[in-house]
Nucleic acid binder design. Structure first.
Lengths: 209, 209
DNA sequence: GTCTATAACCTGATAGAC
DNA sequence: GTCTATCAGGTTATAGAC
């Protein structure tokens, strides 16, 4: 039977969206069943427990986030501003499509960081993070980017990237009337974070006053 | 009776800490009662509902966060680097003492932004935000700071300020061994965020290359 | 495969004895 | 004021009929 696979597929996609919007604890099996349009016990038939269902869903979410990272490639030698531009473009598109994703990932880090990293490493390989670091240090040694610890680049990039989405509902209370005006706010924010990232990364000759 | 007031005091302080650590939904009345060392129904005797108990606690939390904001004072005319330094100092101290506070405030914004702002305005006055904006615009007009929308200053300040604490448990998984090393990580981060804020705010003559 | 029925919890909240 | 007992509602999960 292929209606089997179809319904399993439908469960996973709607469950993914609901977990992103409301988090693990905020989403009940009943909610998911109602949204899919099936009996609650059917969920248990396919996945047995809520945890196993979450496991079937979290991989795709992590993949969609991590795949946005693109590092300095010694072959193509793309300039920093181009890389920064690409990075921001990719994440802005992702978060405009899933505005609750930033909150989701932080909530999950807070809830169970161990499990998140186990899943991440099983997806991208055990040495994923070590490879990132190695790649980054090589770019420093060749003088393409400033000598600054990788973690601070992450802090700058993700701190500035996530904050508008994390505080979106507050912004709509205070300075912006609707989603359309929020979009314009984002458009004004983009060049600022772009500039700050380039300033942080650019090799000394471009950066020093 | 004053044992009355004592126990009410004890309930509030431990409830505040537990709400900060686990959020509103993550903290049950049973948890609080167990931590205080009383019967669960005693909580209902003092506060009747969980919501009213949260109300008794949230004011102090908001106050501790908002009171850190210090804007340009036309009287004393303190220079931007000094103000930035003070701002970062105040929040780093607060978050080192309560590392879960950043996650708490974001979670509550996500859960009920309306209620949070109603409480904020009732504490600081209806025109609190308008006054901030007015103060800020005056500083721009007098040429003390660059002409950039206030919201983007908030995004930069809080984005860079919050991100290390929001991802602390992830950092401890990956790049840092313990709390002491995390402290050092923070010490290295501080001058960077300081520099970025000063660059963002400084009036044109100091800022342009 | 999908349903009903039910189990075994946990939640917030209240009534009433002491 | 503080307790026990109880309620009504929600949660995940399973057994068994069809």
């Amino acid at each position: 039977m292929d209606s089997n696979i179809q319904i399993e597929e439908k469960i996973i996609t709607t469950a993914r969206q609901m977990f992103i919007d409301k988090g693990f604890n905020g989403t009940s099996m009943s909610d998911i069943a109602k949204e899919v349009g099936i009996n609650r016990t059917v969920l248990h038939y396919y996945f047995r427990t809520k945890d196993k269902m979450f496991q079937a869903v979290i991989g795709g979410i992590i993949e969609s986030i991590i795949s946005r990272i693109k590092f300095y490639d010694k072959e193509t030698k793309e300039p920093i501003p181009y890389l920064v531009n690409n990075f921001i473009e990719a994440y802005f598109n992702l978060f405009k499509k899933h505005p609750k994703l930033p909150m989701f990932i932080l909530r999950e880090i807070d809830r169970d960081a161990d499990y998140l990293f186990t899943t991440l490493l099983s997806l991208k390989g055990e040495s994923f993070i070590a490879e990132l670091k190695c790649n980054y240090e090589e770019a420093i040694n060749k003088g393409y980017i400033k000598n600054i610890p990788l973690i601070y680049v992450f802090y700058t990039a993700y701190g500035l990237m996530l904050i508008p989405f994390l505080t979106k509902s507050a912004a709509i209370k205070v300075i912006v009337k609707d989603g359309k005006e929020f979009e314009e706010l984002l458009n004004g924010w983009r060049p600022i974070i772009e500039n700050q990232l380039i300033l942080l990364l650019s090799a000394p000759k471009e950066a020093h006053k």
